[in-house]
C-alpha cells in the first residue's frame, strides 16, 4: 500500500482512518517520509513492513519513540531507501519499466538494505544503481479537487502522487472538493491524475487533517505537540488511546473533525491563506 502526500503534507488521513477502522492486517506501507499515520498503523498492528526514506514527525519532536519501539523490538521491519531512489521506484512503475538507472545510493550501505543491484552502462561501462519498479497493490491519495470522472487536480507541490497513482493497481482518492467536468476543462493543465488512473473517489473536506493541505489548511503543530507529549509520558499506549478517541469512536469523518472543532479548523485555514498569500 502506497500512501500519497509526504510527511505531514496532504496525507490521505480519512482513508488511513478507514483502513484502521476495518482492522486490516499484514500490510506493507510504502511512503517516502512517514509521519503519524505510520505510527497509527504500527500501533494498530496493521503493518509488518514499512518501505520509507525517513520516519518521525519533525525536528522539534525528536526521533519517533513509536518507530524505535516497533523496529528495535523486531515487530515491524523498516526497509530504508533514499528519498530519490524510492521516488524513482514509483517513477519506474509509473513508466511501466522494470527499473531505472541512477547515481544515488551508490557506495552507501543503503544499497544492500533493499537488495539494489548495480549495472554497467552498456555504452560507457560506468556503474549505476538499478532501482526496481515498485507497483503498489493499492494507492491512497488526497487531492484538492476532482470531477466525477476522477480527473484530479493538486495545488502547490505535487509530491509523488502522480507517479504513485500511475504505478498502483488500485487507486483510491479523497478530495477536498468535487467540481464539474466544465471546471476540469477550464484548467486542464492543473490535472495531475487522469480519471482512467483512478478507481474510486470520495468527497472528504479536511481529508488530510491534522496534516496540511497546501493553501487550504496548515498542519496542526499544537496537536502534534500534544500527541507526542502523551507518547513521551505513556509510550505506545498513548497512541492506542489516541486511536480509540480519533479513529474507532467517531462513526463518521464529520464526527472526527468535530473533535478538533470548527474554530481550530478555521484557524488552520487562515494560517494557510497567509502562507500562500491568498
Amino acid at each position: 500500500m502506497a500512501v500519497g502526500g509526504c510527511l505531514f503534507s496532504r496525507t490521505p488521513m480519512a482513508l488511513v482512518r478507514e483502513l484502521l477502522r476495518q482492522r486490516r492486517r499484514g500490510l506493507t506501507l510504502a511512503r517516502n517520509l512517514t509521519c503519524t499515520e505510520g505510527e497509527f498503523l504500527m500501533v494498530a498492528g496493521a503493518v509488518e513492513r514499512i518501505v520509507t526514506a525517513w520516519m518521525s514527525i519533525g525536528l522539534p519532536w525528536g526521533v519517533s519513540k513509536i518507530l524505535r519501539h516497533f523496529v528495535e523490538s523486531g515487530r515491524v521491519a523498516l526497509e530504508e531507501w533514499s528519498h530519490l531512489a524510492l521516488g524513482l521506484r514509483f517513477r519506474a512503475a509509473a513508466m511501466g519499466v522494470p527499473f531505472l538507472p541512477t547515481l544515488t545510493m551508490l557506495g552507501s550501505d543503503l544499497i544492500a538494505v533493499g537488495g539494489t543491484k548495480t549495472l554497467q552502462d552498456p555504452y560507457t561501462g560506468a556503474t549505476l544503481a538499478a532501482v526496481p519498479a515498485l507497483f503498489p497493490d493499492v494507492a491512497l491519495l488526497h487531492v484538492h479537487r476532482a470531477d466525477r470522472f476522477g480527473n484530479c487536480q493538486i495545488d502547490g507541490y505535487p509530491h509523488m502522487d502522480a507517479d504513485i497513482a500511475q504505478a498502483a493497481t488500485t487507486v483510491l482518492v479523497t478530495t477536498e472538493e468535487i467540481v464539474s467536468e466544465e471546471e476540469t476543462r477550464r484548467h486542464p493543465e492543473r490535472t495531475v491524475l487522469p480519471g482512467f488512473a483512478v478507481d474510486a473517489l470520495v468527497l472528504a473536506p479536511f481529508g488530510a487533517f491534522p496534516h496540511e493541505c497546501y493553501g487550504l489548511y496548515e498542519a496542526d503543530f499544537d496537536h502534534f505537540a500534544e500527541y507526542t507529549r502523551a507518547i513521551d509520558a505513556r509510550g505506545p499506549t498513548a497512541v492506542a488511546d489516541y486511536l480509540e478517541r480519533y479513529v474507532y469512536a467517531p462513526p463518521t469523518w464529520g464526527d472526527y473533525l468535530d473533535l478538533f472543532g470548527g474554530e481550530r479548523l478555521a484557524l488552520q485555514q487562515r494560517r494557510a491563506r497567509e502562507l500562500v498569500g491568498a
Binding site: 517520509l33 520509507t52 526514506a53 525517513w54 520516519m55 518521525s56 526521533v63 519517533s64 518507530l67 524505535r68 523496529v71 528495535e72 523486531g74 521491519a77 523498516l78 530504508e80 531507501w81 533514499s82 528519498h83 530519490l84 531512489a85 547515481l103 544515488t104 545510493m105 551508490l106 557506495g107 552507501s108 550501505d109 543503503l110 544492500a112 538494505v113
Partner: peptide, 27 residues
Amino acid sequence: TSVLGTDYWNPKVRLPGTGGANDIASL
C-alpha cells in the same frame, strides 16, 4: 542517520533514516 549497532535489521537504536540526505550527499 539510519541505525546504531552493527546489524541493520536488529538495530540497537533506530534513527529516522536518510530522508534526502543520501541523495544530497551523492548528487
